[in-house]
Design a protein around this nucleic acid. Sequence first.
DNA 1: TGACACATACCGACCAATTGGTATGTTTCG
DNA 2: CGAAACATACCAATTGGTCGGTATGTGTCA
Lengths: 252, 252
Amino acid sequence: MPANPVPLPSPRKLRSRAVSARVPNARTKLLDAAMRIIREQGYAATSVDELCAAAGVTKGAFFHHFASKEALGVAAVDHWSATTARIFEGAPYHDHSDPLSRVLGYLDFRAWLIGGTTAQFTCLAGTMAQEVFASHPAIRTACYTSIAGNAATLEADLAAAIARDGAPEGVTEHGLAMHIQCVLQGAFVIAKAKDDPGFAVESLLHLRRYFTLLFGRETSEPDLAEIAAQNAAMRSHLENLFWTDQSQGEKQ
Amino acid sequence: MPANPVPLPSPRKLRSRAVSARVPNARTKLLDAAMRIIREQGYAATSVDELCAAAGVTKGAFFHHFASKEALGVAAVDHWSATTARIFEGAPYHDHSDPLSRVLGYLDFRAWLIGGTTAQFTCLAGTMAQEVFASHPAIRTACYTSIAGNAATLEADLAAAIARDGAPEGVTEHGLAMHIQCVLQGAFVIAKAKDDPGFAVESLLHLRRYFTLLFGRETSEPDLAEIAAQNAAMRSHLENLFWTDQSQGEKQ
DNA sequence: TGACACATACCGACCAATTGGTATGTTTCG
DNA sequence: CGAAACATACCAATTGGTCGGTATGTGTCA
């Protein structure tokens, strides 16, 4: 067997290396499986046994890493927050020099993300929040943290846009950022109910138009050509972060 | 015992009398209980036993009226559609003479409806759609029918507004009506996640502003005084239609 | 009018399967 | 070694659903 010649890392490094290692441990496999299956079926309809089977681990491993199903739910949402944060950090809309353009670019990017199966583009946090809000406050809180965290990444740009172009009484960067999340979450609900993402994309266009009207810009339509040019690179970026699991085709 | 002196109704009449009788039968009690409990807990987390207990009926009665839990789910959504349809039919915003004012009045009415507990103002169809979209297509379809049915009540007014004031390329009454539902559903998700309806109301104000900007009207802010004047009558109307169950205080 | 057939509404005991969770190992690795 | 990471076997409780039964009509025909 090959010896490991590198110097011993510190215990903290060790743990972090184990967690992020490319041969995933049971905890990581469970979180990835949870992210995928709970988005498809919901939290309550997903059993511990099912998660273990999908992750290829046993129940003993499950309860070694998580004190309860609820604890896994919280961890899965946190895992979701971290995963999506990486996606948006690497997204192309940050390159615009104008704050409002960055916000509009974010909306275009969100619209572009809609594709594939419904479970692939919808939001774990919004899905879980609806069903656990009354019964699992810990999960509910994690869901809000996830949504509000994504909203927060837009607030500096929104504040700059408000400062430069002005805005009606009562309009704040925080309120606008949460309004964006609101439309996104609603778009996912409609897409699921209709089993068709058409209205989701259309609603994001309405939201985009609201911003151009609100800030008095005759801003161009979404630059589809530019977006398309970035498709290949971004898709592979996403696939690495997001759709790495081997089991996409398991349902025949 | 009192004889019944009225002429014998036809079998169809008989059945319809039994269904709408004010002494509710097991089926009605189950549907009312389902509407309330599933909105609180979600579909998967609500057991048949729990529904029977809440409705005060036995399991035998449940499976006499519904072939399966899924069949009850479909019937509960249909019951929800009928109940909410009555609410909006009796709402005050229809009195405006101007189509756009009726649409804005609808939005103000929706904002005014937000109050009480979270489960009281959120939407059964949106809640269920998220968790059953992949596992119970029949329920999912009923949810979309419910949402689209509410949207359809606005399309005539939206078409009139578009015809009079014009609208950008690609804006249709159907798309706008569904965008309204989108924002509403998103507002409910955010309200649940934060356990606070503040952003839900704020998002409806953003949506209202979108309509005034889109149709080029410097339309006034929502007429809160007018709305408040209708509160008492409307609340009692709602309570009769909606919150009739005796068990509001059952949780300690 | 009364007797009989039939239907609906509802009851409650029971069932196999599944649920979240535990107790007790065994393996791996620094 | 010793602790963390896993596996196996098991459990009481709950799950959706079944089944035989009863109570109360309702329509029909003599």
